[in-house]
Amino acid sequence: MKIDPSVPADTPLSKLPNFDPRTVPVEGVDAHLRAVDAAMLDPQALRMRFADPPAWEPEVWLEPRFSDRPVADASVLVPIVIRERPTVLLTERATHLSTHSGQVAFPGGKRDETDADAVETALREACEEIGLAREMAEVLGTLPTYRTGTNFIITPVIALVQPGHVLELNAHEVADAFEVPLDFLMNPAHHRRHRIEWGGSAREWFSMPYMDGTTERFIWGATAGMLRNFYRFLSA
């Protein structure tokens, strides 16, 4: 897929006129890579993994720069809900937001000056966006930062979430919240690679579309990139 060369190269992909990431051809699927074993996705196994992490490196951590906005630190919470089949809690961002509107995302946002650290930012933002009480989240650790094309340096904070949580969505920021099985996301057979020509160079990203009943949850971009790194962490 080629993007109109008249569109400025610093325009985010999600803001391009008539751009729909679902229509970009799939370059490949990583079905040749092994899925993370189900036993590794058990809450206690996850605790042990973060307590004694392996030697590993993130696969994706830097997007092509889309914006001249100042660099800003941010955090997202990667909430793993403790169910018989563990799930990841995700959100769909409200359509009027200035960045990543309408996209699937983790709860999170920009660091406030009053936040003590990246974990505090993630917990505060999750509480503000989806009403997730802090006492319902057990933080396991963090993954390496991921820098977006809009100059956010994001720290993913991994946490176990009790299944009895009650969500209250902030309609100004979040249109919906839903869960995707963790084993689905940690199976590279569901990791699709996309590529387009844009601004004189190639742009590549992952997507992990998930059918939630009759609704397709199209996970792509930074969210898919951070999930891919989580896969690399667990499979190392």
Rank of each mutant, 00 (worst) to 15 (best):
F106M: 06
A133Y: 07
T95E: 14
I82P: 00
L77R: 02
R93G: 03
S98H: 10
H191V: 03
R85D: 15
D30I: 04
P188T: 10
G225H: 05
N18E: 13
I219G: 02
V161F: 05
L132A: 09
D112N: 13
E125S: 12
P21C: 08
W205A: 00
P188N: 12
T214V: 13
H190A: 00
A118V: 02
E59F: 04
A45V: 03
V29A: 10
H165C: 14
V104D: 01
L160V: 05
E138F: 13
T142F: 02
E84K: 11
W220R: 02
F230D: 00
G199V: 08
Q44A: 09
Q162V: 10
S235M: 04
F152M: 04
G164V: 11
Y210R: 02
R232P: 00
H172D: 14
D20G: 04
S67V: 02
T11V: 15
Q44F: 07
N170H: 12
S207G: 09
P8F: 08
L62V: 10
R93T: 10
R147F: 03
R203C: 03
E197N: 11
G213W: 10
H194S: 06
F230L: 15
P5M: 11
A133P: 01
P144E: 00
M136L: 06
T215C: 07
T148W: 05
R111C: 10
R93P: 04
P54N: 12
R193S: 10
P79S: 09
F152I: 00
T148Q: 09
P12G: 04
P86A: 07
R83L: 11
S201C: 11
E84A: 12
Y146V: 09
P54R: 06
T91D: 03
A74C: 12
Y210K: 02
D42H: 02
M226G: 08
S207K: 11
A189K: 15
F184A: 01
L167Y: 08
K2Q: 15
H96W: 08
P17D: 11
E63D: 15
G200W: 04
F50E: 12
E84V: 07
M40L: 07
F66W: 12
P156T: 07
G141W: 06
H191S: 03
